[in-house]
Every structure is written in C-alpha cells, then in structure tokens.
C-alpha cells in the first residue's frame, strides 16, 4: 500500500482559493467529491466540523489536517491543498495554516489505510518535510517528499 492510492494526482490543489476555515474545508471536500469519494458532501463536512469542535486540527507550524470518519465516505482518501497567503484555521499556535491535508475515512476501514495515514501524520511533524511541501509544484514532487 503506498500513498498514491489515497492521494491521487486529481486530489491536489497548489493554489487554494478559500480565505476562511469553513470555506477551505468545503473546497477540499469538493475535490474529493469531484473524484467520486464522497457520497454526501453535507454529511461529511458535518463530521469534519464536529471533529474541529473538539479542538482545531490546525496543529500549528502552518499545517492543518481536517479529517472525518463517516459513512458518506466510499473509500479512504486524502486531498492536499496549499494556500500561499495562508488561512486562519484557529491553529494551536494562532498562525495561519498553509498546508492542508483533508483525510476522509469510511466508517469501516481496514488497518492498511489507517497505517498509511498514521505514517503521513508522523512525517508532517518534521520541519524538512513541511519546508519541502511549501515549495513543491507538481504532483510527482509532492509524492517524492513522502518517500
């Protein structure tokens, strides 16, 4: 299992248009919906926002990883988005977030996918990974960062 199955080239946006937290969640969810992963957009966004209520998934250092585990998700998927201007995501360090990974997981998911997600989450804690992600411009380069 490698991450290219979860994060396909159609699920990437290097130039997010949104300027608010709610908009960016919708925009990223839209990417997954267009790729046929989400059956009910409202339902999934609801799950993501509910998770955000517990505490923001803006983990600081410019990274946010909104995620939802919901029956509206057909298969595990990730979309990546980047905003050069930065978006206020109510992050822990109160700085704007630039790198977004939205994670969609179905109600029932096998461990293989979850392990990939765990691995990506771990990588994002590394400074050099985040720096590279700010500078990649193609899907191939993006995937390379995680190798």
């Amino acid at each position: 299992m490698d991450m290219t199955k979860l994060l396909t080239d159609k699920r990437v946006s290097f130039d997010l248009k949104s300027t608010t937290k709610n908009d960016v969640i919708s925009e990223l969810t839209g990417i997954l919906t267009n790729d046929g992963v989400i059956s009910d957009e409202g339902e999934f966004i609801g799950a993501v926002l509910k998770r955000e209520e517990e505490f923001s998934t803006g983990i600081g250092m410019g990274v946010a990883i909104p995620h939802g585990k919901n029956k509206a998700v057909k298969e595990p998927a990730i979309a990546f988005g980047r905003s050069s201007a930065g978006i206020d995501f109510e992050s822990m360090d109160e700085l704007p977030a630039h790198l977004f990974f939205i994670i969609a997981v179905p109600e029932k998911s096998d461990d293989v996918h979850l392990k990939v997600l765990a691995e990506i989450s771990r990588k994002l804690m590394h400074q050099d990974v985040r720096d590279k992600l700010m500078n990649v411009s193609t899907y191939e380069e993006l995937i390379e960062v995680f190798k």
């Binding site: 990883i65 585990k69 994670i103 997600l117 765990a118 989450s121 771990r122 994002l124 804690m125």
Partner: peptide
Amino acid sequence: CPTGIAHTYMAAEALQLA
C-alpha cells in the same frame, strides 16, 4: 486521540523528535 487517525501519531512523533 478520539478519532485515532492523525493526532495520536503526530503526538507520538513529536515526543520522539523532542
């Protein structure tokens, strides 16, 4: 963490790095 998808592992990695 409650969903057990991302933060659990980020926290683990952060602790290991530190």
